[in-house]
Design a protein around this nucleic acid. Sequence first.
DNA 1: TGTACATCAGTGAACGCGCGTTCACTGATGTAC
DNA 2: TGTACATCAGTGAACGCGCGTTCACTGATGTAC
Lengths: 215, 215
Amino acid sequence: MAEAGTTTPRERYRTQVRAEVKEHAWEQIATAGASALSLNAIAKRMGMSGPALYRYFASRDDLITELIRDAYRSLADTFRTAAASGADLAALAHAMRGWALADPHRYFLVYGTPVPGYHAPGDITAIAAEIMTTVLDAFAGLPSDGPATPFETHLEEHRQWARDHPASAVTLHRGLTFWTRLHGVLSLELAGHFTGMGFDSGLLFTAELDDLLAR
Amino acid sequence: MAEAGTTTPRERYRTQVRAEVKEHAWEQIATAGASALSLNAIAKRMGMSGPALYRYFASRDDLITELIRDAYRSLADTFRTAAASGADLAALAHAMRGWALADPHRYFLVYGTPVPGYHAPGDITAIAAEIMTTVLDAFAGLPSDGPATPFETHLEEHRQWARDHPASAVTLHRGLTFWTRLHGVLSLELAGHFTGMGFDSGLLFTAELDDLLAR
DNA sequence: TGTACATCAGTGAACGCGCGTTCACTGATGTAC
DNA sequence: TGTACATCAGTGAACGCGCGTTCACTGATGTAC
C-alpha cells in the first residue's frame, strides 16, 4: 500500500491525463465556445475512444464545473500571490488585467454570460469570496475619510458578504467600485466592443485606475 | 399588383410569423441559452414542421444575427426616445438599466461572451455607433474644464470612432467612462455575481452614477 | 364572374452528423501471499 | 521470486436523441385575362 502523502504511478498517470483533457477542453472553448465543448471530440483529439474519458470525469457537466473552478482558482491565486509580495491596489488591478488578457475565454467562463440553470457548487462561491477579501484587504490600509454617502449607509446594514471582514462601509464601497470599474473596462474590451474605435484600451484602464486611487 | 408602400395580406402574414418565430427564439434563449437555440425546436413549439421555418429564415445563423440586430436596435431606440424627450445623463443611465433588467438575455446577447468566429455585419456596427453618439450628445452640454489627462491627450489623436462628432477629447473620455462604469455594475449584477452579497445593486448603480456626474 | 396560371406556405421523408452515456468485455498493471 | 487475484484503463458496439438542411411534392391563395 502507498504511504500517506505519496503518489503511486497510477495516481500520477490519472492526474496527468485529467490535466491533458482539460488542456484540450480549453483549446476547444477557444475555438468554438464553451457550449461546443464535447467529450467525444476531446477523446478523438487525444487518440482515445469517447467512453474512455468517463474514467476521468463523471460527465460533461462535471468537466465544465471543474474548468470553472480552475478558472476562479487561478484568479484567486494570482491575487493572493500578488498581495503576498506586497502589491498595492494598482499592482492588483494590473495583475487582474494580465490574468484576463492572458486568456479571455477563461475570463468569460467566470464573468461572461451565465448558463441558464447552472448553479456553481459551494466551494466555487467560496473562492469568489476569497477574491473579494483580497481586494478589501488591499484597501484596508488606505484612509477612508469624508462623510458617508447614502449607499455607504446602506452598506452598514447590508454587509453579509463581508461579515467577517473588519473593513468599514466606506472601504466596502471602495472595494466594490474597484471591482465594478475594472470589470467595466475589461469586459467591454475583451468582448471586442472597443475594436475599431482607435484608442488604446490599456490607457483607458489605467485612467480608470488612476481616478479610482486619486480619492 | 400592390401599390408601393402598401402591404398585401401575404406580406403581413410573413411579418407576423417571423415575429412569432423570434418570440419563441427569445423564450428558448431564456430557458437554455443562446447556444441551444434550435430551429426545429421552435417549429415544434409553433406546431409546424422544421423545414417550414426555412421560408422565413435562411438559416439558424441568420435568425441569431437578426436577434442580435433587434437587441441592438431596441437599446438604440430606447436611448433615442429618451434623448428626444429631453432626458439628461442620469435618465439615460436609468433607461439603460431598465432596458438591461427587462431582459437580461437580450443584454448578454449583445454584451456577453462573444461567440468565437462570429463577426457582426456592418449595419449592426452602425447601430452600436449610433448608441455611442447618443451618449456623447448627452455630454455635449456639460462643461469640460480642468487640465487634460494623459488618456485625453491620447484620445485627441485616436478618435476615429468619433470622427464626425464635435465633442472634445475630455468629453469623449467622459462618455467612455460613463459607458464602462455602467456596464461594470450591470454586467456583474446581471450575471449574478452580487447575489447573496446582501446589498441592493440598484443603489450601487445610483452611487456610481452620482459619482460620475459630480465632477 | 369565371377560368387558367403563378406564387408561395407548409409537409414528410431523407441525409449525414455528432452528441452523451451505458455496458460487457479485453488486457495491462499493481498487490498479497 | 513466483503465482493468484484484484484493480483499473481503455475499447467497440449500441441506444436514443436532436440537430441543420435539402428536396420533391401538395394544397391553398393570389393574379391576369
